[in-house]
């Protein structure tokens, strides 16, 4: 057995390390928020612990900036992330249900195939993807950022595991006896059961799509069509630091904070979702 003193030492050590790590996680965002509320000249002079009174001015400067259209960026990002989340969760649930509830010849092959491509990076097909969407006249539009999310192996796997644990096939059988058609069974009986899984995956897909930079940077060329990460990258490219840092910090805050605010409200469900993803079905 361990002595009481040793355990006490461990308790203190654990708490100290946790506080240091939490400080690290929060510190950078604190500086971000503080600097987003200060004017350019003051930021250049040095760092301050307290926020300044320049928040509204920085915000006004940001939304009236024609070179870096962050407002249209936010709207585009919301469209792309929202549509991706909706399509991805609905069709992943549909695919999972199709493979879970029906017996057919290629069932095993289809399942194995999806599991095999579970963690395949999208970058390896980026070149062919760009050529394809150019041929389809979809380059410089938002469609190529939305439609491919219908096929998301990881989300499918999550849905499939969820179905295994929460949908008894007898329920589907009972619906059939009551004369429900297959699509109706899915939309009105299966989907409500899958609501918790779909909510979690919708959040993750939304965040993933909101933050996505690689493909949008290759696809989008017109400034008015750019999503937020592409505009942030433009700032870096133009060496924006020397012009108006207050506005720049404000733009970074606009990219980061909406997600954080939503996260703080839903953190319980999100963390539970991460834990579920880690435990194999």
């Amino acid at each position: 057995m361990e002595s009481k003193g040793y355990n006490r030492f461990r308790v203190i050590f654990a708490h100290v390390l946790l506080i240091i790590l939490s400080f690290l996680c929060l510190f950078f965002f604190y500086i971000l928020i503080v600097n987003a509320t200060r004017p350019h000249a003051e930021i250049q002079k040095g760092f301050s612990i307290l926020p300044g009174g320049y928040l509204v001015t920085n915000f006004k400067n940001m939304i009236s900036d024609g070179t870096y259209p962050i407002v249209s960026g936010v709207i585009n990002s919301i469209i792309v992330a929202g549509c991706s989340a909706a399509l991805c969760t609905y069709f992943s649930a549909l695919t999972a249900y199709g493979l879970y509830a029906y017996d057919f010849k290629l069932k095993k092959v289809a399942f194995t195939f999806i599991m095999a491509i579970l963690v395949m990076p999208t970058q390896v097909t980026a070149m062919g993807f760009l050529r394809l969407i150019t041929k389809m006249n979809m380059d410089d539009t938002l469609f190529p950022l939305i439609i491919p999310s219908i096929a998301s192996p990881a989300v499918f796997y999550f849905m499939y595991s969820y179905l295994q644990s929460s949908l008894p096939l007898s329920l589907v059988e009972a619906a059939r006896i009551d004369g429900s058609r297959e699509f109706r069974t899915f939309n009105q009986i299966v989907l409500p059961i899958m609501k918790p899984a779909m909510a979690v995956q919708a959040i993750f897909t939304f965040v993933g799509s909101w933050n996505n930079y690689f493909v949008p940077a290759l696809v989008l060329e017109t400034k008015s069509k750019m999503t937020v990460p592409v505009i942030i990258a433009l700032l870096r490219g133009a060496d924006y630091m020397n012009r108006d840092m207050g506005k720049m910090y404000m733009m970074i805050a606009t990219a980061i904070l909406p997600i954080i605010v939503v996260y703080l409200f839903l953190s319980k469900y999100i963390i539970a979702g991460v834990a579920l993803g880690g435990v194999k079905g």
Binding site: W210, N211, P229, I256
Partner: peptide, 10 residues
Amino acid sequence: LIMASAFAML
């Protein structure tokens, strides 16, 4: 959950 590109810019 933070946008990697914005985090890097920060």
